[in-house]
Design a protein around this nucleic acid. Structure first.
Length: 119
DNA sequence: ATCTTGACTTCGG
DNA sequence: TCCGAAGCCAAGA
């Protein structure tokens, strides 16, 4: 079970961070794509310390149905992941197995044109 | 073999 | 940014 590459990778997700089904699928190059990850998680065993709750949809929504959904909310909240808006801000809490924490986009400034290019 | 369903993502309007 | 449609794949019925 926990020798499953999907689970192994999920174990690497840091506390307070989340990643997506698609990201995991891409990383592992799963032919089945994102859905395959969903299937793996549906069969996810308990008691192996697999932080299944840190896997969310590409847009920061929880894809699992009740009653597990509530548990996932609670677990994420306990780690400091903000869900108040109904979805997770991936620019803040997203994490990639390959690239680590997702880079926060530079605040869109209004005065871009007056900026001389550097580098 | 066909159809449905789901812990999905991307694209176009 | 929001929403529906389409693409996608494995499992069950």
């Amino acid at each position: 079970m926990s020798w499953n590459p999907v689970y192994r990778l999920i174990k690497k997700i840091p506390r307070g961070r989340v990643t997506t089904y698609g990201e995991l699928a891409r990383t592992l190059r799963l032919p089945g794509g994102a859905r395959a990850v969903g299937y793996a998680l549906a069969a996810c065993p308990n008691g192996y310390g697999i932080p299944w709750h840190r896997v969310v949809g590409a847009r920061g929504y929880l894809r699992i149905g009740e009653p597990h959904r509530s548990l996932q909310r609670q677990l994420l909240r306990s780690e400091g992941v903000d869900l108040e808006s109904g979805r997770i801000d991936m620019t803040l809490f997203g994490w990639s197995p390959l690239h680590g924490p997702r880079k926060r986009p530079r605040p869109r400034s209004k005065r871009i044109h007056s900026r001389e290019r550097r580098n």
